[in-house]
């Protein structure tokens, strides 16, 4: 019985290895709401495929379902890295419809958005457990990175041994503090960027190829 199990394990390991070589790595774009995940996903997809991933918005929880863009081929230093990008809903521990009322939303719509956002968080956490091979963690560099959500998610990512790239987004905004993010997660490399303006995307692509290639 033990022999069979061992045999089965080793066969599945070999087949996993074969598929891993062929299939593009699935990279989840994670982070708190409104950090610019979809803006980054769209920037990457537009730069390399010409398509977009999903609508961007300044209202939090615009992305309430994980969206995937497959076979994004990124060329760096003469070689091509193919990845699937999964743009995930912003992860948070509290969702309140009242925060949407400030954005000229009717109560019914706000409540529905809130429910969908909650489903989205559940989906994002599920993807993190099951379906991603690496993580791009996007943070708004104008906000304090020392939050429960960030600490917990980075902890989970580390416990999974997933390769992770931390991006300090929104460097185009006046209050951006990249160093604060670097200090918060010194065990990871932090790359500054403005996904909206396209600033420093070259370095981002180089790092993506390096981490996930």
């Amino acid at each position: 019985m033990g022999l069979l199990t061992n045999l089965k394990d080793s066969i599945s390991r070999v087949t996993d290895g074969l598929f891993a070589a062929d299939e593009p790595k699935r990279i989840g774009i994670y982070g708190p709401p409104n950090a610019g995940k979809t803006t980054l996903a769209n920037r990457i997809a537009r730069d390399w495929t010409g398509d977009a991933v999903g609508p961007e918005s300044h209202i939090p929880h615009e992305t309430r379902r994980a969206r995937r863009k497959e076979n994004v081929e990124i060329e760096r230093n003469g070689r091509t890295v193919t990845i699937d990008i999964v743009d995930t809903p912003g992860v948070t521990t509290k969702v309140d419809y009242k925060e949407f009322l400030d954005h000229d939303m009717e109560k019914d719509d706000a409540v529905r958005r809130s429910r969908e956002a909650t489903e989205g968080v559940a989906e994002a956490m599920h993807w993190l457990r099951e379906d991603v091979d690496g993580v791009i963690y996007v943070l708004d560099s104008t906000n304090d990175p020392f939050t429960q959500v960030n600490t917990m998610l980075i902890g989970i990512i580390e416990s999974q041994d997933l390769p992770a790239l931390i991006l300090a987004n929104k460097t185009d905004l006046p209050g951006a503090d990249v160093q604060q993010i670097a200090n918060a997660f010194p065990q990871h490399e932090t790359i500054p960027l403005s996904a909206l303006e396209g600033d420093n995307m070259d370095e981002v692509y180089t790092k993506i190829a390096e981490y996930f290639g």
Binding site: V91, K94, D96, M152
Partner: peptide, 13 residues
């Protein structure tokens, strides 16, 4: 209604 609290570790686990 419209107000949720999430236990991320539980969702993940």
């Amino acid at each position: 209604p419209g107000k949720y609290e999430l236990n991320l570790m539980e969702l993940y686990d």
